[in-house]
Simulated assay, not measured.
Amino acid sequence: MNPFEMVIGIVLIVTIGSIIRAKYGVHGHRGRDSGYGPDITPRDDAETKALQAEIRALKERIQVLERIATDNNRAVSLDEEIEKLRDRSLP
Rank of each mutant, 00 (worst) to 15 (best):
L78N: 12
K23I: 15
E5V: 06
A22I: 01
N72E: 12
I68W: 05
R30K: 15
M1W: 10
S18L: 15
K59W: 02
I82A: 04
R30L: 14
T48L: 13
Q63H: 13
I16E: 05
Y24N: 13
T70M: 10
A46G: 11
I20D: 00
L12K: 00
Q63T: 13
T15R: 02
D79C: 11
D44Y: 06
S89A: 14
H29V: 05
D44V: 07
H29S: 00
A75T: 04
G31N: 07
L78Y: 12
E66Q: 14
S89C: 06
E80F: 04
G25Y: 01
D39C: 07
L12D: 00
I62A: 06
V7Q: 02
L65F: 10
Q63R: 15
R88P: 03
E54K: 14
P3H: 15
R61P: 05
R86I: 11
P91A: 07
E81L: 12
L58N: 07
G35M: 03
D44S: 08
D44N: 08
L85H: 11
V64C: 07
G9S: 06
K23H: 14
T48C: 09
M6N: 14
Y24S: 07
G37V: 14
D87F: 04
L90N: 10
R30H: 13
M6E: 15
L58M: 09
G9N: 06
V7M: 07
I10M: 04
I20C: 04
L90V: 08
E80W: 01
I10W: 00
R56P: 05
K84P: 02
E54N: 10
R21N: 07
R56Y: 09
D39A: 15
E66K: 13
V11Q: 02
P38S: 15
Y24A: 08
T41M: 02
I16K: 00
D39P: 01
I8Y: 01
H29R: 02
A46R: 12
T15Q: 05
Y36M: 14
F4T: 15
V26P: 06
A46Q: 12
D71W: 03
L65V: 10
K49V: 04
G37K: 14
D44A: 09
D44P: 01
V26S: 08
E60S: 13
I19F: 04
D71N: 09
R74V: 01
Q63F: 12
K84S: 08
S34I: 06
Q52C: 11
R67S: 10
R88S: 07
G28H: 10
R32F: 05
I10Y: 06
T70E: 07
E83W: 04
V64S: 09
A53Y: 11
E5D: 13
M6G: 08
Q63A: 15
